[in-house]
Simulated scan of single mutants.
Amino acid sequence: MKKSPSTPRTRNRDGQPWLQQLDSGIWRICHSPGDGTTTRLSTKTKDEGQAKEALERYRLSLKGETSKALLTVGAVFDYYSEQHVSAKANDVERRDLALGWLRASLGDMTIAALQRNPLAIQQYMQARRAATAPVYVGRATTNPVRKAGEGTLRYEMNALVTAFNYAAKHQRIPANALPHFDMPDAPEPNDIWLTETEHDWLLEFVRWEDEEGRMSRIWRFVALALGTAARKSAIIQLPWEDVDLAAGRVYYRQGVQRSGAQRSSKRTVTVPIADWLLPLLQRAYEERKGEYVLDDATEPSGAFETLCRRAFKATGNPKFRDLTPHVMRHTTATLMARAGVPIVNIAGVLGNSVAVCQRNYLHHTPDHLVNAVNFRTPISTITEQLL
């Protein structure tokens, strides 16, 4: 009776190549594809990290993908930026800025070296907090680097994770290439807002004209930010076709302006044009150059920094030194609450849920909780009897 042929034995790791260290300390690649044979290739190195890189190149060569291997952290960032950010992301400039900072500190490291030294990521965050991290290539302004806040660091770390996940998804790097690290804590909510007097002063102060006598971009930006409480990205990408001057409405199509971009989870918001804002937008329309209210869809970051610096110098008010587009949005919502505008209406203007607006702005409303304690008046006769 003949014995049935035995199934070829797969040695170790179910057909996947693995590393083995010899007594000499040299690492070698071993591979048993399942046909009863084993391939052994020396990596010619005692460095485990270099051996892992050689193993990864070998794995990719089995698929005919040697040229696709990404061996440095910077290559991962470049691949993610070219293949995804430039084509599909809505926050292109901010995402590229985050990758620029990360690339300046971590880009030259090999992926294996980063795996061996996960503290490099923590050291990067410490350097950003202290404003001592290497400056990214192409930084246009000569202003001193500011210390990065926790919100900025969380954004940069999310960009790091997303870049590695994207490269792994497309089989350019191993799935576990990025070492574990602790994400920065979420920052405390920023409750800086301008008072009614500060709000009005800023609107007057920013009335700058450009060299052609037109309303400056920063003037238009601030007017829309304080007048409509819109997000920065929505204002930057606002086309004139979404401004209905006759009906007195601005339609913010958030997250869908760029062709091919991923749809944002933020809802479309329709905001009435305030009486004081309407003549400014009418003038801007008469002076328009191009399809966008701000002429083009680039950020007015340099002009905004100049505004903050000049406003702080003129007043000494630290609120203007720390002014951000979000502070202006928060200011408008806060002043609406202080004026007694119902929370549901504030939510409608902001495009937020009522619950979020209650959490952020209810305490600014006049007589907050007063009605709760004065829900009824005791009957006077009973009160007199008790006394």
Rank of each mutant, 00 (worst) to 15 (best):
R94C: 14
S81M: 01
G100D: 10
R59L: 11
M157D: 05
A355R: 06
R28L: 07
P134D: 06
D296L: 02
L178I: 06
Q257F: 05
D108G: 04
A89L: 06
R309I: 01
K232G: 07
I379T: 01
Q282W: 08
A112V: 07
T270Q: 11
Q16A: 14
M336L: 14
H330Y: 14
Q122L: 10
G248S: 02
L99I: 01
N352G: 02
Y166Q: 03
L22R: 13
R329D: 14
P134T: 02
S67I: 03
T39D: 14
K63S: 07
H330R: 14
N374R: 12
K46S: 14
E211D: 04
Q257M: 08
M109D: 13
F164R: 01
G340F: 09
V327P: 14
T72D: 11
K68A: 00
L278G: 05
E48I: 13
L386G: 09
P134C: 06
L277W: 09
F77I: 03
L226Q: 11
Y166H: 07
V373I: 05
P5H: 02
A113H: 07
V327C: 14
T38F: 08
R329Q: 12
E198R: 01
V373C: 08
R103K: 13
R9I: 09
A104Y: 03
L280G: 01
D367K: 06
K147R: 10
R28G: 04
A223K: 06
A337Q: 03
T162V: 09
L335Q: 10
L387Q: 12
R13I: 06
F221I: 00
Q21W: 04
E305V: 03
M336Y: 10
T197M: 06
G64S: 01
P272G: 00
I379V: 03
K313A: 09
G74V: 02
R128I: 06
Q254S: 10
R11H: 07
L226E: 12
